[in-house]
Design a protein around this nucleic acid. Structure first.
Length: 359
DNA sequence: CTTGCCGGGGA
DNA sequence: TCCCCGGCAAG
């Protein structure tokens, strides 16, 4: 796991940055082109939620932004953790499920490049494609640097800001090692009506991209749930901001993790119409290897880093003596039905913990 | 009630 | 080891 990030070259980060810019404009186009489609699908699709990211049928690693980012950028192995579970799954290719579970609607540009046939087919049988509310969304970029909070309109702007102001890289404006990328977050200013906005803040809002599951299944499950709760905590907060609905979105899954187990890191001030999200450790790096040790930075304390790293690398908590909480995902039995028992994974057939649909 | 799966047992 | 299933807990 640690190795993965060290493989990220700076060029990849650059690509990432470009994609972000492209994304924002692309989204605006999306509004025009597919507004009707989105509305229709929203009104008809039974449930709009974040997709379950299952390691054994993963979308080639990175699920971002509900798939709006061309997956080709992620084929460089952003989240190419080795999937912990069996790759032996293909032995039973995903059989066609019942017709009603097939969701024919797909975004026209959501191509499968970088995703092979097997994976794409499993895509089809997955939950509805997560849609993002993008009505009247204005994308801003907020500096996460402590006591800064500067908001700029473009990713480039905020990167330049961070680079020059916080990282002190005045003379090397071209140079980007992607480090700035950690230090800002994308903010969507929803100018929709409040009621509309509130309805979009269902417990797990589609706009709040849930962080991809980390392969350390249980670790992510148990610990990242904290992050989820923090995210949910924004709901009442947003209610207190009647006009501007801030949907904080983080571009990197690990960027979304700072609230994890950092008590008080996410602060809401319900009084008035303002709030501040000020976790103290924007620059959490996975490697734990300081990128530029010379600069004083608003980094997580070593303790926090240690903590986070421990979370990410710790083995599944053994919950000794306690029964493992049942997975909430659909398992073979539910998916295939009793009549297709031979299609179940062996574990399910033996009434053991399902190996195909791991939560 | 259904579902997931642990623990145990038979071949 | 493979396979099955009673029974429990959760929903």
């Amino acid at each position: 796991m640690v190795v993965v990030q060290e493989e990220l070259s700076s060029s990849e980060w650059t690509v990432e940055l470009q994609v972000q810019e492209q994304k924002s404009s692309e989204e605006l186009d999306m509004d025009k082109v597919t507004a009707a489609m989105v509305l229709t699908s929203l009104s008809t699709s039974p449930l709009v939620r974040s997709p379950p990211v299952r390691p054994n049928e993963s979308l080639n690693g990175s699920w971002k932004e509900g798939g709006f980012v061309p997956s080709s950028t992620s084929s460089s192995g952003y989240w190419s953790w080795n999937a912990p579970s069996d790759q032996s799954n293909p032995s039973t290719p995903s059989p066609p499920l019942s017709a009603d579970s097939f969701k024919p609607f797909r975004l026209p540009f959501q191509t499968d490049d970088g995703i092979d046939e097997a994976e794409s087919s499993s895509l089809l049988f997955d939950e509805p494609i997560p849609r993002k509310r993008k009505n009247s969304m204005k994308v801003m970029f907020k500096c996460l640097w402590k006591n800064c909070g500067k908001v700029l309109g473009t990713a480039v702007g905020i990167q330049k800001h961070i680079r020059t102001i916080h990282l002190g890289r005045v003379g090397e404006s071209d140079y980007s090692d992607g480090e700035e990328d950690f230090y800002y977050t994308e903010i969507r200013l929803n100018t929709d009506s409040v009621a509309d906005g509130l309805s979009s803040l269902s417990p797990v809002s589609p706009s709040l991209a849930s962080p991809p599951s980390f392969p350390t299944q249980d670790a992510s499950k148990s610990e990242l749930s904290c992050a989820k709760m923090d995210t949910k905590g924004m709901t009442p907060l947003s209610r207190s901001a009647p006009t501007n609905l801030y949907l904080v979105h983080t571009d990197h899954a690990y960027q979304a993790t700072p609230p994890v187990n950092i008590p008080g890191s996410t602060k809401f001030t319900p009084n008035g119409n303002s709030f501040s999200i000020s976790w103290q450790s924007p620059p959490v790096t996975f490697t734990g290897v300081p990128v530029s040790p010379t600069h004083a930075r608003p980094t997580a304390s070593g303790e926090q880093k240690q903590q986070i790293q421990t979370i990410l690398s710790s083995p599944p908590r053994a919950s000794v003596g306690l029964r493992k909480p049942r997975g909430e995902g659909k398992k073979c039995r539910k998916v295939y039905g009793m009549e297709n028992r031979d299609m179940w994974c062996t574990a399910c057939r033996w009434k053991k913990a399902c190996q195909r649909f791991i939560d």
